[in-house]
Design a protein around this nucleic acid. Structure first.
Lengths: 185, 185
DNA sequence: ATAAACTTTCAGTAATTTCTGAAACTTCAG
DNA sequence: CTGAAGTTTCAGAAATTACTGAAAGTTTAT
């Protein structure tokens, strides 16, 4: 499997960024390698290409499958397992986004719900609860919103994003269009 | 400074989540502590409350200031420095979002621009470039979008988020409203 | 100018995370 | 059933990241 200079720099970069995106260096590298090659890759090719151990490769592939970013690809007549991206770039981005939401927001939402059920023991707690409640509401909005965006699908998402500063204007007009929706101001 | 059970669990939780949100455990704990207390806190109170070293506290506070999540608060007649949240919950969320975008997206965007300038050496590279270009466009959309959302401000953002499934419908109607905007489909 | 009250820095240590590679496991062909 | 071709697991090693605390730095009052 070819590792041209261009591909190498991209792979290395995605490795470095990996840790910021919720997975570790090798997982990032493996993902980049698989996404940038149109041909399905075997675990061994990946290990060789990145000069990492076969064991590490196996764990990385496992994690990428848990994130639903790659999938197995069966080559008829071949014993080995091959891997390909689980979808197009938009799909992958969406999955990363979704998965991070699960890890970064959901556990907090769940804790906040519990904490808000307790009776405040004094004014300090009562005040803290007020803040926790704001955080809770914010996270719920974000969650609902992100699920809404998910359900739009790539094309509409793209339209929405390209709408750019039009969003503000659409928002101003929305009351006339959608009288059923409640207004905040 | 009181550490009631409720506040303690919240602080501990935000500490654990901290690493997932881009900063480390103690930084998360310090932030939670400051946000949940209406009174300004001194570095010493924070160190004591969390049982961490004064040095670590100092570094944590520095980082939170770099993220623009807390600010100094001068108490007349006091020599010590006190710290308070840099704004309301929405402001803080926005800042975290913005800061993460800078760390997680901008460097990649910049690398991709460079890689796309190179002439592809062969068909493998040319294919990889096609994919890199898709990633580039996606990240640019996300960046533009997130800046757009920033500029709406908390109230409108809240309206937009609460709009929920109305977003899809607004989108369908937008052509009639904003004939100037280009359409993707 | 001194000292008290406070903050920051940073070298060394501790804790955590990641990686390796050998052993165990699985699957298939003959 | 045996062994070859492959995959996974996991204990220990390596690398990275976070934390401590003593020393150096800063600011203010006298």
């Amino acid at each position: 499997m070819k590792m041209t200079p261009l591909i190498t720099s991209a792979v290395m970069h995605f490795g470095e960024m990996g840790s910021r995106w919720g997975f570790n260096r090798t997982v990032g590298q493996i993902l980049a390698l698989i996404v940038l090659h149109d041909k399905p890759l075997s675990a061994q090719e990946i290990a060789d290409g990145l000069s990492i151990s076969r064991g590490n490769t196996s764990m990385g592939l496992k994690e990428l499958q848990a994130w639903r970013l790659i999938k197995q690809h069966i080559v008829p007549g071949e014993r080995k397992e091959f891997f390909v991206p689980a979808g197009d770039i938009w799909t992958l981005a969406t999955r990363v986004f979704e998965e991070r939401r699960k890890r970064e927001i959901d556990p907090t939402l769940s804790l906040l719900r519990d904490l808000l059920l307790d009776e405040p023991a004094n004014s300090t707690e009562s005040n803290a609860q007020k803040t926790l409640n704001e955080i809770h509401d914010l996270l719920e909005s974000v969650t609902a919103w992100s699920q809404e965006l998910q359900s739009l699908g790539p094309e509409k998402l793209d339209t929405l994003m390209k709408l750019g500063s039009g969003v503000g204007r659409v928002l101003e007009l929305k009351d006339k269009l959608l009288p059923g929706k409640n207004t905040v101001n």
